[in-house]
């Protein structure tokens, strides 16, 4: 059963595509060493001075960045630079790693997500995640998509649930391919279809933000192209943060790009600007293929 509090939290203004009025207060740029503007005018998520430690090792050093409504923010950088770690802070997936410790402030629409009062279940329903390797549950296609609405009690009856499943699969561009085999195991689909199924599963609970951790790294170029198209469509309704190893992909799908290096957030900017005119030397070296 879904209680009242959850119901309020799960309802999000982002779905209507209406952006809340810009805050009257002038946004304070946080004190960081990051090159470029880390804030946006209408943030859905804000992070300030985030540090992440795995035991004694610091994986993320003082990162501050905002995520805007209806944008795709891509995070790039060499392997081990902490971009996935940072992504996993945004829906507290790092909680599952016992040695991980997060400090700093991460807010979702003004609510501190690391606050004691924040329920991690609600948070993860609002900030969904798509993983690197497609990981559909070993259940039917239908059950995969229906799982989220079911555990959160989003559907009052079977027909509502059917509707959610169909809508989600349509939005993920998978409906036409699977509508005749909803009862078959999701693990039997092709890699690209599995990843779109995971996206459908994620949007079935109507999140505000979707986190994607290298969603195409296990897919062939054609499947990748389909996912990229999909990401662009999903931007109409959701904010998307995507970690990618492919700079071309970042250039194709994102509006803003953040470059990470060894746990530092080096540079943030409009994707077009960053790729054509990087300000920082490290960013330039990475983008021009001098390392990474």
């Amino acid at each position: 059963m879904l209680n009242q509090k959850h119901a309020v939290l799960l309802e999000s203004p982002a779905k209507t595509n209406d952006v809340p009025p810009p805050s009257p207060v002038q946004i304070q740029e946080p004190d960081t060493k990051t090159v470029g503007r880390v804030t946006v005018d209408k943030p859905i998520m804000t992070t300030r001075n985030v540090d992440v430690y795995y035991g004694d090792k610091q994986a993320i050093i003082d990162v501050s960045i905002d995520v805007a409504y209806n944008e795709v923010l891509s995070m790039i950088g060499p392997s081990g630079c902490g971009k996935s770690t940072f992504l996993r802070c945004l829906n507290r997936m790092n909680d599952t790693i016992e040695s991980a410790r997060v400090t700093g402030k991460i807010e979702l629409e003004g609510h501190d997500i690391y606050d004691k009062k924040t329920d991690v279940v609600t948070l993860r329903a609002r900030v969904g995640m798509v993983f690197q390797k497609p990981n559909p549950f070993p259940k039917s296609v239908y059950e995969n998509v229906a799982y989220g609405p079911r555990i959160h009690g989003l559907a009052r009856n079977q027909s509502e649930l059917d509707e959610i499943v169909q809508t989600s699969l349509r939005r993920a561009g998978l409906w036409d391919e699977v509508k005749d085999r909803l009862g078959q195991p999701g693990t039997g689909l092709s890699g690209g279809q599995q990843q779109r199924l995971c996206i459908a599963r994620c949007i079935a609970v109507n999140p505000d933000v979707i986190l994607m951790d290298e969603p195409c790294s296990a897919l062939d170029p054609i499947a990748t192209a389909r996912i990229e198209e999909l990401i662009d469509e999903l931007r109409q309704n959701y904010s998307i943060v995507i970690v990618t190893h492919s700079m071309q992909q970042a250039a194709r799908v994102s509006q803003r790009t953040a470059y990470f290096h060894l746990g530092d957030l080096i540079e943030v900017g409009e994707t077009a600007t960053i790729f054509t005119n990087p300000q920082d030397k490290l960013t330039e070296d990475y983008l021009t293929g001098r390392f990474g």
Partner: peptide, 11 residues
């Protein structure tokens, strides 16, 4: 990956 998938859904 199955565990993460479920947790990531808010289970």
């Amino acid at each position: 990956s199955i565990r993460e998938g479920a947790l990531g859904m808010g289970a």
